[in-house]
Simulated scan of single mutants.
Amino acid sequence: MIREAVDDDVDAAADTLTAAFADYAFTRHTIAAENHPDRLRRFQRLFLSDVGLPHGRVWVSEDLGAVAVWTTPESGGAAEVMENLLPVFTDLAGDRAEFYASAEEEMSRHRPDHPVWFLGTVGVRPEFQGRGLGRAVVAAGLREADAAGVPAFLETSEPGNVGFYETLGFEVTAEYDLPGGGPRTWAMLRPAEG
């Protein structure tokens, strides 16, 4: 069963996202190796508690083994909060702060300049992968974006994710390498359906 997250889910959802992103090329490139799991968990927790829940929508599987965090144009304020959190995110990046900043700058060049539902992060605990949970938590957000008549957007630095997102109706709008030897990244957009 998929449901919207509540504040009490933040810690377990952050644990899920931390496990899902433990070896993700983007986070390895932009968050320091020293205490990486702790830094990554704090980053994901802040994104859930300060961005996703108050300024977007968050869906989880009942067992909290899958999480999808969206920001939406309807809720507003997410961009301002992200700007205010920049010093914290920079601190969490540690000795990778320069790479974090250059990655964000490069990605921003490929983001839509019109309102979108932005899939900021989605993850499934490794032991729960292959059960359709990732598809289910993303699909919940896509249904709401469609109901609002707003396109959906995401970025991924995992080549294997591109085909998965294409099965959900996303199309690649940009493909580029992040500066400083960072991973190849894909920007993907899905028009509103229905």
Results as ranks from 00 to 15, higher is better:
2 I>G: 13
3 R>H: 07
4 E>T: 10
4 E>V: 07
5 A>R: 00
5 A>I: 00
7 D>E: 11
9 D>F: 10
9 D>R: 02
14 A>W: 12
15 D>G: 12
15 D>F: 12
18 T>E: 15
19 A>T: 05
20 A>R: 05
22 A>Q: 12
23 D>T: 15
26 F>D: 10
26 F>I: 14
27 T>F: 15
27 T>C: 15
28 R>K: 11
28 R>Y: 04
29 H>A: 05
30 T>W: 10
31 I>P: 01
34 E>K: 14
34 E>Q: 15
35 N>D: 14
35 N>W: 11
37 P>L: 00
37 P>Q: 04
38 D>N: 14
40 L>N: 11
41 R>C: 09
42 R>Y: 07
44 Q>S: 13
44 Q>C: 15
48 L>M: 07
49 S>G: 13
49 S>I: 07
52 G>A: 02
53 L>F: 04
54 P>R: 08
56 G>M: 06
57 R>P: 09
61 S>K: 01
62 E>Y: 10
64 L>A: 14
65 G>M: 11
66 A>V: 01
66 A>E: 03
66 A>Q: 01
67 V>C: 00
69 V>L: 13
73 P>A: 11
76 G>N: 02
77 G>T: 04
78 A>W: 14
79 A>N: 09
79 A>R: 13
81 V>P: 05
82 M>K: 11
83 E>A: 06
85 L>S: 08
86 L>H: 10
90 T>M: 04
97 A>V: 02
97 A>H: 04
97 A>C: 03
98 E>C: 07
99 F>D: 11
103 A>Q: 04
106 E>T: 14
109 R>Y: 10
110 H>C: 08
115 P>V: 07
116 V>R: 14
116 V>A: 09
117 W>N: 08
118 F>Y: 14
120 G>P: 01
125 R>F: 06
129 Q>L: 03
130 G>S: 00
130 G>C: 00
131 R>K: 10
131 R>M: 06
132 G>N: 01
133 L>V: 06
134 G>C: 00
134 G>E: 00
134 G>L: 00
139 A>P: 02
139 A>S: 14
140 A>Y: 07
141 G>Y: 12
141 G>S: 08
142 L>T: 02
152 A>F: 05
154 L>D: 00
155 E>N: 03
156 T>W: 13
160 G>K: 05
161 N>Q: 11
161 N>G: 03
162 V>T: 04
162 V>L: 01
163 G>D: 08
165 Y>M: 00
165 Y>I: 01
165 Y>C: 01
165 Y>H: 08
168 L>K: 03
168 L>S: 02
169 G>F: 12
170 F>L: 04
170 F>M: 03
171 E>D: 13
171 E>K: 15
175 E>P: 05
178 L>K: 05
178 L>P: 10
178 L>C: 08
178 L>G: 06
179 P>H: 03
182 G>A: 02
183 P>C: 08
187 A>H: 13
187 A>E: 06
188 M>A: 09
190 R>M: 01
191 P>C: 10
